[in-house]
Design a protein around this nucleic acid. Structure first.
Lengths: 222, 222
DNA sequence: TAGATTGTTAATCGATTAACAATC
DNA sequence: TAGATTGTTAATCGATTAACAATC
């Protein structure tokens, strides 16, 4: 059923949004939806939705549309929401702790099993269900528990070196929050860069265009 | 010099990366670079880089390349890195506090002037240089200080309502971390959605494809 | 001047949209 | 059966890449 092989990145990036919306529809007790209704809620074209879904197989029914729950679970299967990949967080600073506690890993195919920091003051501090381990324990831990996914919340200077170590310990995927473009380095390894600083600058660009700074600085004085 | 008007989103999303790399080159004392060298460092084509830059004007010099510092500062101007837009954070939970302290707003065109939460236990708690204010103060604060940008670190249920209020108080741009697609609602208002959950699912998809869950569950047992 | 590299136009590639026959 | 809506092919649109004349 799956004409897989390689689906374009544009399609894949839309899957989580479909999955999210279908979850909401399910909660609202809606159990049937057409590509046209879906397209209106998502601000996409019905054509695009049908194209996207047909990359993976025919989930719909002519003359009827899609079963919300069935479609949701199919997309969930494609994404791997039930895989429970063993996941560790590297860096227990503000961001690392926030990600570890704020993100629901369990519903997104990952299971958090450890959080590490090189700062001894943080060792033993509780973060959600876990306690921070010292970075010295990292290699032993990996040998024992074989994490698949690592979340990098560390300064850019150490990112490459830590990533190299983790790859050699069997980590296959990085969710990278450091200001460093990891994608450049490996293939066969999955990298998802989250550049929050770049995201903010994109916003700033938009505001800058909308409110040009022409001489009269009434808007930006304190 | 600027053939502005409307630059495509694909180009704009690359600008922060150019800016970031040029900053690194500058720190390394490199003051001249060709589109070809740049393309190698960024894993883009030289053609694309020249196309991108020429959306905004001819920053280069034939036979020579680009002056690193000059190009960096031109891109900085385009992005608005010096605008210092007054910015508030809504929600002082794990994520709000981490964003407020972890992101360098000043170098990205924004100036953090307030952080708010509806939980009274958090009122007065120090977050970086600021103290958390109670949500009740929000309207008075906006009337007085007229923030331009709001960072939303609140649950999705309240996002739409808070955003509506803020728009009516003059906020023109949202950096939205809640699990809610704000883009749908206004025009003339800039929205940058950061869906961390979607980002993680994209990663999970990649791992799921690379390590299929075929019967023999050796990889995912505990 | 000769060599290098840009700015820019033209060609290619991929993604989105439109159209419609298949079918529930 | 008639109506609705999919799956899929074809047309369009936009973004990326290649090529090269302009020029420092």
């Amino acid at each position: 059923m799956s004409k897989n092989g390689s689906i374009s990145a544009s399609v894949i990036k839309r899957l989580p949004r479909y999955y999210r919306l279908l979850g909401e529809l399910k909660n609202q007790g809606i159990d049937r939806i057409s590509s046209r209704e879906l397209s209106q809620r998502m601000r996409l074209t019905a054509s695009q939705i049908r194209q996207d879904l047909n990359c993976f197989g025919g989930f719909g029914q002519q003359g009827f549309g899609y079963h919300v729950d069935e479609l949701r679970s199919e997309i969930g299967k494609i994404l791997g929401v039930d895989r429970g990949f063993r996941t560790i967080v590297i860096g227990a600073g503000n961001l690392g702790r926030a990600i570890a506690t704020h993100i629901n890993f369990d519903t997104r195919g990952c299971r958090l099993i450890g959080i590490f920091d090189s700062n001894k003051d943080l060792t033993g501090v509780k973060v959600g269900e876990l306690r921070v381990r010292h970075a010295d324990e990292l290699e032993g831990f990996c040998r024992r528990y074989r994490p698949t996914v690592a979340v990098l919340c560390i300064p850019k200077a150490s990112t490459q070196q830590i990533a190299d170590t983790l790859v050699s310990m069997g980590v296959r995927a990085f969710w990278n929050f450091s200001h460093y473009d990891l994608s450049i380095s490996y293939d066969g390894i999955i990298v998802e860069n989250v550049h929050l600083g770049d995201s903010l600058l994109t916003l700033t660009y938009g505001v800058n265009v909308m409110m040009p700074a022409d001489g009269t600085e009434t808007e930006e004085e304190q």
